[in-house]
Simulated scan of single mutants.
Amino acid sequence: MSIDIHWARGELAHFLKLTQLHRPPDPPGVVSFGPRLANRGSQGDIVASAQVVEQILGRVLPRWRTEVPDDRNKEINRWYQHREAAQRADVVLERDAEIRERLGDDAPQLSAGAMHPWVWDGARALWQSGHFREAVTAAARKVNAETQNKVGRRDASEGALFQSVFSKDSAKAGQPRLRLMADDGSDTFRSVHRGAAAFAEGCYAGIRNPNSHEDGLPELPGHEALEQLAAFSVLARWVDSAVVAN
């Protein structure tokens, strides 16, 4: 599902208004001479708004917590980092479509939130904190666990599990299969399940294992991590839609 730009910009504007600094009037009979500043909104209203705004920022600027400075003027306004991130996100939402059109890059874009729930549920928390490589690994583990749950197995995982469940052979005791189409003896049936097994093997051998076992790897760029999540989303949809054959 694509983001509702009108709604998101309204939430950002509301937050920016609540966190704007102003000099409140002095109480009756009191005259202050210092720069006594306060946010326009109450702390409760700001915290409630921030809860929504952080979700928007996670979609629009996934690395905002590390890329937006948080050490300037926080003693004046504790919401400084949130405010700058909200301002940046608002510009992205307002101008992104225009910029892509003007620069000649109006191609479709991937949305992590539109991927299979197993993938995004597994990756979301790490993704929103900028840990892209770990987010992909978490998504891979989630897909593996949900596949185990679907076929009721704990004795096999990852590559071995998918080789078994997508095997063209008939089910055996303790080894159910996942069927993406009925076994009609056709080349298509054999091709579909051979391809699914090979694709799963590639996902775990080529993506999950290097991400998990190689120390000192640099952080994945966001767009590469998104492509890897998309691969696991394809696999998750196949598993989720498949019929269990015992």
Rank of each mutant, 00 (worst) to 15 (best):
E219A: 02
Q175L: 13
C203S: 07
F15P: 03
V244N: 02
A242I: 08
H14K: 14
P108G: 02
A140V: 00
H131F: 13
E214T: 10
S191P: 03
R9I: 07
V192A: 13
P218A: 14
W120I: 09
A231M: 13
L37S: 08
S233C: 06
V165H: 03
G159I: 11
G29A: 14
K168H: 08
R40I: 08
Q148R: 15
Q128E: 15
R102L: 14
T137M: 04
E101G: 09
G41K: 03
A89E: 04
V151N: 09
A13Q: 10
W79V: 02
G113W: 10
E98H: 12
G44I: 00
A97K: 06
R124Q: 14
A125K: 12
K142H: 00
G202N: 10
S111W: 03
R9E: 09
D169Q: 15
Y204M: 08
H82K: 08
R100M: 04
W127N: 06
A196G: 01
L235Y: 06
N211A: 15
V244F: 09
F189S: 05
A85G: 02
R133W: 04
I5W: 02
W7E: 12
G216R: 00
I207W: 01
L57D: 06
V165F: 05
M115W: 04
E84G: 00
L12V: 08
R23N: 05
G58H: 02
R190Q: 13
W120N: 08
R78A: 15
G104M: 00
R124S: 14
D4I: 07
V53S: 01
A236Y: 12
R237C: 06
Q175H: 10
H14G: 11
H116I: 08
W79Q: 09
D26A: 12
A38Q: 15
K74F: 09
A85Q: 03
W120K: 03
A173Y: 05
E146C: 11
D155N: 11
E54N: 14
G159E: 11
K74V: 13
F162V: 04
A50I: 07
D169N: 15
L12W: 07
G104V: 01
K172T: 10
V52D: 06
Q55S: 14
I207E: 00
K168E: 12
E75R: 14
S2D: 13
A171P: 10
Q109I: 09
E11D: 01
R23W: 00
R133P: 07
E54M: 13
T66V: 12
G202H: 02
T19Q: 03
G206R: 01
D90P: 07
A197K: 01
D26I: 01
F189R: 01
A13N: 09
A86H: 06
K17S: 13
